[in-house]
Design a binder for these strands. Structure first.
Lengths: 215, 215
DNA sequence: ATCAAGTCTGAAACTTGTTCTAGATTAGCG
DNA sequence: CGCTAATCTAGAACAAGTTTCAGACTTGAT
């Protein structure tokens, strides 16, 4: 990553991502551009992974000038994190449609995460690009990464029939999320098998049982 | 990261890192070069973090040609991961000198990790560089990353008075390690407080109690 | 319809990781 | 010592992320 992270945010009026729809209404054509960009990104990432997402190519594939691409997404990392947000929304919607079936909260969470994991396995290169971006992100991407994190938390809480989780349960969820991310990385870099990821997730999910008296 | 990851390892006789001392004996001057490189890297990373470790600067600071630097460490990531190995060895040695004092295995592990965490806090920029490299590493760095992982596992097992850990305990250790890495990342990117990291680590360590009947 | 402000485009320039090359140096060996 | 292969050096060259800029196009308000 060549240039230094920008030390200040010069209040440049950029469309920004969909993080907070309040920042700028975005005209229809702008919305379309944004969508084209994300689609092109996902496609390029789908083959090749992280390295195949080249800003010039994304710009060309989405029929947008390089400068415009950078106005929408101030760095490659921002772009990929936004792609992840996008995909997570899909996933969450899908999961809502068919909720997990396990008996205990721990089982349901593990089941949900394994389902998400299988979805990622179908597009390992895309997963690689998104996850690498997520963990490589520096402070300048914090808001966006945080949003991804909140979305993930929401998915997990949905899976345990939540209803006002206790602080202890929230702690457990945090550890599960840590495990999820980190296990994903070890799998993507070929240092852990799918089976190993499964075990790790299930192990982490046991923490839920510890604090749980069956909803 | 411009160039594609090299798909093949062309058996080029490179000094490689100290991973396995068997690969190439390394003359005295070579050992000295390697050491200078790692020292320069740690220093540059100490200010500035990941971005401040620029290959040309590392080469200059360690009085080595750029090409030579690349012969010793085939990429910036390799270089930083090797730096991490180096630091971890120091840490492990230090920890051995004063073992943790907690009563239960879980307490001792948490104590150990928090001690390591405090060490990292003293050099947050260095920590940033090393951890980012670690999680960004792709398959071409797997052996080295794996070595770091083994070292970390060893530290944790040391902390729980180990003695042939059960498979369940090993699973718990894996989750703890995942949590450790991921929590570190969230702290480094400013998305979690020190207190939060502490809680997360302690929560993960509870998994040890689950499988433990006090050694 | 018209004007000002904000956007988008195309292209070049800049930065930093990585590779390559030709010529010194060094190491090990007979 | 003198040779040969490996290693090291200096420096150019290349790749991809990022920045910049001048000019064309849109948009929104009047």
């Amino acid at each position: 990553m060549p240039a230094e992270a920008k030390p200040d945010t010069p209040a440049r009026a950029r469309p920004d991502t969909a993080a907070r729809p309040a920042s700028a209404p975005l005209t229809e054509r702008q919305e379309a551009r944004r969508r084209r960009i994300l689609a092109a990104t996902a496609q390029l990432a789908g083959r090749g992974g992280f390295d195949a997402v080249q800003m010039r190519e994304v710009a060309e594939a989405s029929q947008v000038a390089l400068g415009t691409l950078y106005r929408y997404f101030p760095s490659k990392i921002h772009l990929l994190v936004a792609t992840m947000q996008d995909q997570l929304e899909h996933l969450h919607a899908t999961l809502r449609r068919r909720p997990p079936s396990g008996d205990s909260a721990a089982e349901r969470v593990a089941e949900t995460l394994m389902r998400a994991f299988r979805a990622l396995q179908r597009e390992p290169q895309l997963a690689d690009a998104m996850v690498r971006a997520l963990t490589f992100a520096d402070r300048s991407v914090s808001p966006e990464v945080d949003q991804v994190s909140r979305q993930t938390t929401a998915i997990i809480l949905d899976a345990m029939g939540r209803e006002r989780p206790t602080p202890e349960q929230l702690s457990a969820v945090r550890v599960i999320e840590h495990t999820w991310h980190s296990a994903l990385i070890t799998w993507l870099s070929g240092r852990a098998s799918i089976a190993q990821v499964k075990v790790d997730i299930e192990t982490a999910c046991r923490l839920i049982e510890l604090t749980d008296d069956e909803s």
